[in-house]
Every structure is written in C-alpha cells, then in structure tokens.
Design a protein around this nucleic acid. Structure first.
Length: 156
DNA sequence: GCCAACGTTGGC
DNA sequence: GCCAACGTTGGC
C-alpha cells in the first residue's frame, strides 16, 4: 500500500466537488506532466490512499483523503480537440496521457495548510514543501503520512 | 545535443 | 499581480 498526494485547483475541481458526485468518484484527468503520469500509470494501485491538496488558493493545503479506485487508463481528454487539455500528440493507439479514478474518503475538519506543513521540521524533506516544487502527483512517505494525519485530527 | 526562449505552476 | 522555478520546444 502506497501513499500519494494529488493537487487540484479548487476553482477547477475541489474536494467538495468530489464529495458531491453521485458515486463520490472522479477520473483524475488533465495531468500533463510525465513524472506525474508515470506515478499514476506505473506505481498506483487500487486501494492506495492519497492526500487531496488544494493549490493556487488561499490557503493552499491538504484538505482530505481519497482512495485510488481504478487502474490507470488512457486520458480521453487528450483526444478531444474541444478539451482544454487536448494534446494532438497523444495517439489513441499509443496514448501519452493516463488517469486513475479517485474516490472520496474524508474531508478534514480544517485543512492542513502548506504553512503548517512548512513549520514542521520532521516534514522538511517532503517533496511538497521543497522550494520550486511543481509536481501535481507525488508519493508521500508513510512517516510523513502519519504525521500529517495527526496534524489534521489535532486541528494543528 | 546544447541551450535560449517560452509557457506554466503556484506561492506569496 | 508578480515572479521564481521548472518543463518543453525548437533552432542550430
């Protein structure tokens, strides 16, 4: 079982949007970064858990937990010329971009903000808090996962 | 293969 | 809105 962190801008797709889906599931489409794609396509397994991170908002931070609910499959938005994430270089016979489905698990009572994460010396080696990090899908070390969950439940 | 130009991410 | 950091593109 692996742990992950997945970013989304809440104005695009928020954890409340996910919770409001009838089946509480959603394809995590639109990822257009090779490293992030590789994590989804090659390393994620059904049942893995991921932090849902709100980026580009006030405040940025982890707002809850989702479960990986499907194996990876080609991202159909790459093939749709009307889609904002259309990529003419993604060939349906050899797809360039992939997605997994995520399923709502829980929303924290209050977010664990990026500022709070940065204030913890034990989290200093997390990929997320490192300077210049732009990766939208990344692994989370189990020890970091445990610390952050405690922060969420303590309201820290 | 190098690298400058460009576009995007995302915190602040 | 600004801009640093980073990834991608394309000329050479």
């Amino acid at each position: 079982m692996n742990y992950w962190l997945m970013k989304s801008e809440p104005t695009e797709f928020s954890i409340d949007d996910l919770a409001a889906r009838p089946d509480r599931r959603e394809p995590w489409d639109g990822v257009r970064n090779y490293q992030a794609r590789n994590f989804m396509r090659d390393a994620m397994r059904v049942g893995d858990l991921a932090f849902f991170y709100h980026s580009n908002c006030e405040p940025p931070g982890i707002v809850g937990i989702v479960r990986i609910a499907s194996e990876a499959r080609p991202d159909p938005t790459a093939f749709d010329p009307r889609d904002k994430h259309y990529d003419p270089k993604s060939d349906p016979d050899d797809p360039r971009w992939w997605l997994v489905e995520v399923e709502f698990v829980e929303k924290f009572g209050r977010p664990v903000t990026l500022a709070a994460l940065k204030s913890r010396p034990e989290l200093a080696d997390m990929q997320l808090v490192k300077r210049g990090n732009r990766l939208s899908v990344m692994p989370v070390e189990p020890r970091h996962w445990d610390i952050i969950r405690k922060m969420a439940y303590e309201g820290a």
